[in-house]
Nucleic acid binder design. Structure first.
Lengths: 339, 339
DNA sequence: TGATTTTACTGAAACGGTTAAGTGATTTGA
DNA sequence: TCAAATCACTTAACCGTTTCAGTAAAATCA
C-alpha cells in the first residue's frame, strides 16, 4: 500500500510540489490562482493526501510538539499520578496546548534523569519539566537552544522560564492558619525533602510560621516518607502509636491529607475532632475528601496554561526570560477545628 | 548556534556519515572496527551530537511514538481526568511504553473527532484510542496502515486490535452482588449512555441481573448525567429528595460512587447504612474513599500494558488481529451492607 | 508605449538522517 | 596458491517536505 505524498498530489493536479505545499499551508505572500488552488485541493481529497509530519518538521524545523516530563513520585512505581496534582496539571497543559494545535509528547523521567532524550534535536518545539531538582539533566538541556519551562522548580538560571508559586509562603500560610486556630503541636508530613524542592520550601514555611509564633520546633513532629496515600495512612498509624501528641498536621500535599484522614478513621479517630489537617495544592480530590480538605489553594489550571503560554511565546520569537509566581490562598473547608 | 549533525561527526572522526550512522545505531550485520567505533563515539561526545529524530523517522519510517487519545469525559471542560480511570490507565500506558523506549504523543479528542490528525502519515507508529464510539473518526484511520488498538470500545472490525473487559458481565456482577446482599431497589447511576459504549454494556448487565432475579426494572432508578463527582453528588441529593426509595446503587464508575457517598454524607446520611454502593473499575481512589468502595475490579495496569504490547507486536510485524478481554472480579470493601 | 511591478507559478537545494549496493583490502578454505 | 569469503568501509539514492531564488506572462504606471 503505497503512501501518497505531495508528489502524487502535484502530479494529479498538474503542478509542482512547491505549489502544492503553498496551498496546503496557505503560505502568506504567495499568490496562487483560485483555479489552481481548487484543483490542488480536489487532488488532495481525491488521493486522500495527508502530509508527513516528520518530513514537514525536518524541513521547517517546527514540530508542533511540546515535551512534558513528569517525575515519578515513587521511583520504580508505574503510577505516574500517585500525586493527583500531576494529573490535574497535565490536563491543563494538554488542554491549552491543544487549543493552539500543539500536541504533547509525554514522558516519565528517563532512567538517567536525562531530560535531553525527549528534547532531542528539534524533536519538540519546547519542553515543560515539572518538579525537577537541579541536576545535570537540566544542564544537558541547555546545549539545545529550545525553550524550556520549569514548573515548580527552584533553580536560578538565566535562561529557563519558570512558573511556580511561593511554596515557602504557602507552607507558612498553612501553618499560621493552624496556629491561629489555636494549635501549637503541629505535625509536618511530606515526602522526601529534596534540596531546593518544593517540599523543602513548604517545610521552611512551616518553620517560619512556628518561629513567628514563638513555638519551638520539634523534630518528632516531622514525618517524611513519600507523597502517597499509603504513606500518609501509615503516618496516621504512627501518630496514634506515639499517643496522639499533635493536634494538627500540615500535609504538604492534599493526597497526604486524605491519607491521614483515612488512616485515622480506620482506627476510629476523626478529622477534625482528633486532628486538624490542612493540605496543599487543592487538587480536585480535596473537595471529594470527607471531611473535605482545608488546603492551600493554587491555581493548577493557570499553572499549566502559563507554562504552555511561555513555550508558545518563546517559539514565536519572544526572547526574554519569563517568570511567573502564581498567587495562593487558603480555602477553608471542613478538616480544621478551633482548639 | 549551529546545530551539530551527523556530518559534523563524520568529519570530526574522519569517516563517512554512513559509518557514523552504523555506529550510533549499532546496526546489526555491519562490521566496524573497534578503533573506528571508538573514534566515532569520541567525536559524538566531543561535539555533543544528538540525532535529529525527525530526520531519523523520515528515513527509517519509524517514530518510536505511540499516539494516545483520551476522550473528554465532560465535553468542553479542560479536565481530562475527571474520571480518574483515565489517569490510571495513562500511567500504565506511559510506563509500559517507556520500558520499550517509546514515547507517548498525547491528545484529547480533536474537535472534529478526527483521530487521524494525531496519526498523520507516519507521525506515530501506532495509536491507542480509549473509549471511542463507532464514528467516522475511526473509519478515517483505516486509510492509514498503522496499527490501532481500541481500548474499551465495542466495535466489530476486522483490523483493529482491541482490549477491554466484559462490561456487561461486570454490570451484572455488581448488581447481582447487591441483590445477593438482599437489595432489590437498586439505582443505576452513570453518564450518558452512548450506543455501544461501555456504560451501555454495564447498564445491560444491570438489567440482566435484575431480570435473572425476577426483579422488575424501574426507569426511575436510573440516573444519567455525566461521569463526574459533581454529578454523583447531585444525584445523591435527588435520591434524597425523592424520599430514599432505593437501598442500593450501582455506580458505573468509582468516581460516581465517591460522589454518592459524599453527597449523602453532606445531608447527614451514611454509606452503607442508608445506601449500599458498588462502584466500577477499582481506580486507585476507590480504596481512599471513606467508606472504601466495594467495586468491580478490573486490572487497569494490565489494560494499559496490553494495549501497548499490541502496538509493539504489530510494529514488529505480527500481522494478525489481537483481542483481549481481561478478567474482572468484585472486591468487597466497606460500602455495601447486608439488608 | 516601454519600463516596472505584480502575479502565478517552477526548480532545486536544503533539512538530517538510513540503508542498499558497491569496493578495495585482508582472511580463509581447499 | 588462488578463488572465495569476509571485513571495514564508502557512495549515493532516498525519505517527504519547505522555501529561496528564479522566470515568463500579465497588469500597472508614467
Amino acid at each position: 500500500m503505497k503512501r501518497v505524498s505531495i508528489k502524487d498530489v502535484a502530479k494529479e493536479a498538474g503542478v509542482s510540489v512547491a505549489t502544492v505545499s503553498y496551498v496546503i499551508n496557505n503560505t502568506p505572500n504567495q499568490s496562487i490562482s483560485d483555479e489552481t488552488s481548487l484543483r490542488i485541493r480536489k487532488a488532495v481529497t481525491k488521493l486522500n493526501y495527508i502530509p508527513n509530519l516528520n518530513a514537514r518538521s525536518l524541513a521547517s524545523r517546527k514540530t508542533n510538539l511540546i515535551g512534558v516530563v513528569i517525575p515519578q513520585t515513587e521511583p520504580g512505581k508505574e503510577f505516574m499520578f500517585s500525586n493527583p496534582f500531576y494529573g490535574d496539571l497535565l490536563s491543563s497543559i494538554e488542554y491549552t496546548a491543544r487549543q493552539h494545535s500543539y500536541h504533547l509528547l509525554l514522558s516519565g523521567p528517563e532512567p538517567n534523569q536525562s531530560y535531553i532524550n525527549i528534547a532531542r534535536n528539534r524533536s519538540v518545539d519546547g519542553i515543560i519539566i515539572v518538579g525537577a531538582y537541579p541536576t545535570k539533566g537540566l544542564d544537558e538541556l541547555r546545549q539545545l537552544d529550545i525553550p524550556v519551562v520549569l514548573v515548580d522548580t527552584y533553580v536560578k538560571d538565566p535562561v529557563y522560564h519558570t512558573v511556580g508559586i511561593d511554596d515557602r509562603l504557602g507552607g507558612k500560610m498553612a501553618t499560621a492558619y493552624l496556629i491561629e486556630k489555636g494549635h501549637s503541636k503541629i505535625a509536618f508530613v511530606s515526602g522526601q525533602i529534596e534540596e531546593q524542592g518544593v517540599m523543602q520550601k513548604r517545610f521552611q514555611g512551616y518553620r517560619d510560621a512556628l518561629e513567628d509564633a514563638g513555638i519551638p520546633f520539634h523534630q518528632d513532629f516531622v514525618y517524611l516518607g513519600n507523597i502517597s496515600f499509603e504513606y500518609a495512612q501509615a503516618t496516621a498509624d504512627e501518630m496514634l502509636r506515639r499517643g496522639r501528641i499533635e493536634t494538627a498536621a500540615f500535609a504538604s500535599a492534599d493526597i497526604l491529607g486524605m491519607g491521614l484522614i483515612k488512616g485515622l478513621r480506620r482506627q476510629g479517630f476523626h478529622v477534625p475532632e482528633d486532628l486538624s489537617i490542612v493540605g496543599f495544592d487543592d487538587v480536585s480530590l480535596a473537595q471529594m475528601a470527607d471531611p473535605s480538605l482545608t488546603t492551600v489553594r493554587q491555581d493548577i489550571s493557570a499553572k499549566g496554561k502559563t507554562a504552555v503560554q511561555f513555550i508558545l511565546d518563546a517559539v514565536s520569537g519572544n526572547i526574554e526570560k519569563q517568570e511567573k509566581i502564581l498567587p495562593i490562598h487558603i480555602v477553608e473547608r471542613e478538616s480544621v477545628k478551633n482548639l
